[in-house]
Design a protein around this nucleic acid. Structure first.
Lengths: 191, 191
DNA sequence: GTAAAAAGAATGAACGTTCATTCCGTGGGG
DNA sequence: CCCCACGGAATGAACGTTCATTCTTTTTAC
């Protein structure tokens, strides 16, 4: 039978549960119930809960990166590339709120911190386009000469925050507001 | 015997545990052990774990606000006030990393979300000075004419992010870097 | 082609562990 | 002698995980 089918159903159920209730509010029994499978079935596809959580994250990254790079032209000016990536990211998470909420849960967990530590210190190069973009900007002197990590925070800190506010209905972001917000982020990093 | 003394010891232990291991990594038994009291003793001072968590948060807010307002002059120019509050906030959380980590845990929990919803929609006016500052800035046309919530995110989103990076040792913020970062945040909100 | 047999998938009750909370015996101050 | 703050064992609920069993599909034998 379709092994992949059931595996994906479980992943979708887990994503929804975790996004809405957090890791600790998502018992395996409930994930199984939502997926319409037996509790034990999950363990045919995932070694344990931690593996399920990590695979879900990897899956999410693989889905998001291509979307961000759609229409991205590395030859264009720095500013334009920033606006493109910022806008694309904001659009994606607004249209896929469960993905965003899951990413937030992951990043604010011990797994997420360790993951980032590996990326930053181990030079895992996971965020390829961003890394290049910031470095280009620094060497061309069009963005501030600050450590990469800080530039990252200056640009994505606000984006994450407004995305959360939108998804929690504290504000409603339309196309105009998205554009203004991303431009404001650019103002923060540009020299 | 000193009731208040023991109460504070318990709160300190809980703060440390939660900051380091999160709510779900901080069983009451361990908090008790760290505080050097019996598990049951905690319940003489706090009705249950949730109450302990919430009181800890309130306590933290009461400690932070006065520090931010130290030397704050509402009559000074908008820009100067922004830099003052941003710098004071960043300094505080860097010098009190456990407080920061606790706040993060709280904000990323269901309690925290509900709390913010009350504040924003119910006009609880919790963040007095910030509220006034942003409104002054808008009416004086020195900051961007965006919704308050977005301005908040533009200014504090990066600050939270760099504070986390500093505390996790992904970057080391000295006085110079703090000043540059806060100014960059200002660049994001200023018109 | 069909029936029997083997293999593979799926199940959910049961297990051991961990947690928040309660309960009760103890000991020191009034 | 009494009171009550205290400690920590006891309690029961909830969790992740396991496993004996059932159901489904595939293979084999004739």
């Amino acid at each position: 039978m379709e092994k992949c089918d059931k595996r994906e159903i479980i992943m979708k159920a887990a994503l929804e549960m975790v996004a809405e209730h957090g890791f600790h509010g998502s018992p395996m029994a409930m994930i199984a119930e939502r997926a319409g499978v037996g509790a034990g079935t999950i363990y045919r596809y995932f070694e344990n809960k931690e593996v399920l959580i990590q695979e879900l994250y990897r899956d999410l990254e693989d889905r998001i990166f291509p979307v961000l790079l759609e229409g991205y032209v590395p030859e264009r000016p720095i500013r334009e590339r920033f606006l493109h990536l910022g806008t694309a990211w904001l659009r994606y998470v607004i249209n896929n709120p469960l993905d965003f909420l899951y990413l937030e849960q992951f990043h604010n967990s011990p797994y997420g911190v360790e993951f980032r530590r590996d990326k930053i210190l181990g030079k895992k190069e996971g965020c390829g386009p961003f890394h290049d973009l910031f470095n280009d900007g620094i060497s061309q002197q069009v963005i501030k000469g600050l450590p990469l990590v800080i530039l990252f925070s200056l640009f994505f800190g606000p984006l994450v925050a407004v995305a959360r506010d939108h998804i929690l209905s504290f504000v409603t972001l339309d196309d105009a507001l998205i554009a203004l917000t991303v431009e404001a982020c650019w103002d923060g990093v540009k020299r």
